[in-house]
Amino acid sequence: MTYNILEKYEMVSTVHLMKIQAPDVAKAAKAGQFIILRIDENGERIPLTIADFNVDEGYVTIIFQEMGKTTKQLAKLTTDDTLQDFVGPLGRPSEIEKLGTVVLVGGGVGVAPIYPQAKAYREAGNRVISIIGARSEDLLILEDEMRTQSDEVYITTDDGSKGHHGFVTDIVLDLLKSDRKVDRIVAIGPPVMMRAVAGVVEPFDVETLVSLNPIMVDGTGMCGGCRVSIGGETKFACVDGPEFDARKVDFNLMMSRLGLYRPDEGEAVEHYESECEKETGCGGECTCQ
């Protein structure tokens, strides 16, 4: 199978948006689910949370940051290219219901999977407060989109170039300390951010969910590579998650498991860039892939 790339652009430096033609996936997709893609025959299968989907036009949107070999290669694809594989929707959908006020926290590319949740919680009749953060203003994504789907939006940047100078957790804490009633918090972002949110909410009695993105191969429960420890119990993030109670997640274990292949990732990038250069002499900067 091959899947067409309908649209692709760089949203901010090293963060890209891609719309993939996959009508059956779009039809079945729900907020909170993810897909697995493989670029070509030699490619690795990587999971990415669904950032948006359109049933009428039959596409699924993904947003990714260049990190390892696969995402670097993905970043170079254009609408003339195709993906070899695009599997989904995988994982359990978020349990969207009318709760009252829901706080959605997105950090970095984690804002992408927060967006469909904002839509869904809003549609279900909730008041949506969004807190989106980035290292600096020029790395912040989906601000306008989040504004259209939220009742309130807070922005934080690590360097203070926009919004609150600090972390998303500062705003979460302020909200929890205020006398406003919060019925659920959903936080998606880098593991350190999600761990920080789990820490901040600890003394408060508010349901808090995080969406985990550990290393996976098949995404259907077959390999167990994505196992995480939730309240001392082993769960497979691909089929039991990806959303879990933030307070119960063993973040240290998860972060350590995420680092398992770091040396290999480096080698893969090096190999990719040298192969690329061999062909074009471009130093890995071309679009030959």
């Binding site: 030699n42 690795e44 590579g225 990732e265 080698e267 893969a268």
Partner: peptide, 20 residues
């Protein structure tokens, strides 16, 4: 997982194949 990485994903040919 071990066998899937080796057989399906051809990890024994890493980095020619991307899966480690």
């Amino acid at each position: 997982e071990f066998l899937t990485r080796v057989n399906l994903m051809k990890a024994y040919q890493f980095p020619k194949y991307d899966t480690p």
